[in-house]
């Protein structure tokens, strides 16, 4: 379980990105974090794995107080949290395999990683994950040879090979076309279900958020303004989060749309 207690982040410029946010995420729950740009969504998930250090408040992953860790203990704790990024954040000049295996860096020693001599079971797991996301044949390609959707799958493999308890997902679909976006969201959802993973997914697309999460949390100017089930996102709530707009078209019938996507779900696979 992930628990945020009164987390506040004030940047050096004086901007308060998060203001007294408290949140509990039980094991295995997938939540979508929505809110306008600059609401603090990115800051929130970066505070959890401490790419950003919170100014005040405490964050617990299970019994570990993440906000109180030394740098060595923090590296160990980071292994328990996989992160997936907006622009994929692959190291472009490394091969797909190296990118996936880099998820094991917290577990192997320096020289083993320097000579790319990862334990046999890590290599096997990397192949298994690549096969799971349909990129088995891409292992030796350089990351910059892949398409956007393929890169994001590699990013997912890199996060999952850490064998995490929690996924931190930052705008996974922002650079993808609508169809690939859905495939990626569905894949993340399925993998979370398979492994019983909890996930925080930052997402701009309200519709995708409703389709692929069990719970929605809304942030506005660093404050928590909504926490509820996907169908609780009525126009009034969206106005509260984002401001005045015509919201009826955004929240059509969710179920119907879901079926529509499952039909072309079979086409999911590597494209060259």
């Amino acid at each position: 379980m992930l628990r945020l207690v009164n987390v506040l982040k004030r940047y050096k410029t004086g901007d308060v990105a998060l203001n007294n946010v408290s949140l509990e995420i039980p094991d295995g729950q997938v939540i979508a974090l929505i809110g306008p740009s600059g609401a603090g969504k990115s800051t929130l998930i970066r505070c959890v794995n401490r790419l950003v250090t919170p100014t005040e408040g405490k964050i617990f992953l299970g019994d570990t107080e993440l906000t109180a860790l030394s740098s060595r203990a923090l590296r160990k704790a980071r292994r328990r949290m996989g992160m997936i990024f907006q622009e994929y954040a692959l190291v472009e000049r490394l091969t797909v395999m190296e990118n996936v295996l880099s998820g094991r860096l917290g577990y192997v020693g320096f020289w083993a990683s320097w000579f790319r001599k990862f334990p046999k079971k890590d290599v096997q797991e990397a192949y298994r994950l690549l096969d799971r996301v349909g990129l088995m044949d891409m292992a030796d390609k350089r990351a910059d040879e892949l398409s956007g959707g393929q890169r994001q799958r590699v990013g997912i493999c890199r996060a999952l090979i850490q064998n995490p308890e929690l996924l931190l997902v930052d705008e996974p679909t922002a650079s993808l076309d609508p169809k690939t976006s859905r495939q990626i969201m569905r894949l993340i959802n399925e993998l979370c279900a398979e492994r019983g993973l909890a996930a925080i997914i930052n997402i701009h697309d309200v519709h995708l958020a409703q389709m692929y999460s069990q719970r929605i949390v809304g942030l506005k100017l660093g404050e928590l303004v909504f926490d509820g089930p996907p169908d609780g996102l009525v126009p009034d709530v969206l106005t509260e989060i984002y401001g005045e707009e015509d919201w009826e078209a955004t929240i059509e019938d969710v179920d119907e749309d879901d079926e529509d996507v499952d039909e072309d779900g079979e086409t999911e696979g590597p494209r060259t």
Binding site: L51, K76, Q86, L105, W114, R158
Partner: peptide, 21 residues
């Protein structure tokens, strides 16, 4: 690029591993 640097850091890599990867 900042994002791959953050990505490798968030795997729990040590400093030298981070520089290497």
């Amino acid at each position: 690029a900042k994002s791959p640097n953050e990505a490798i850091e968030s795997t729990g890599a040590g400093w030298f591993q981070w520089v290497n990867y």
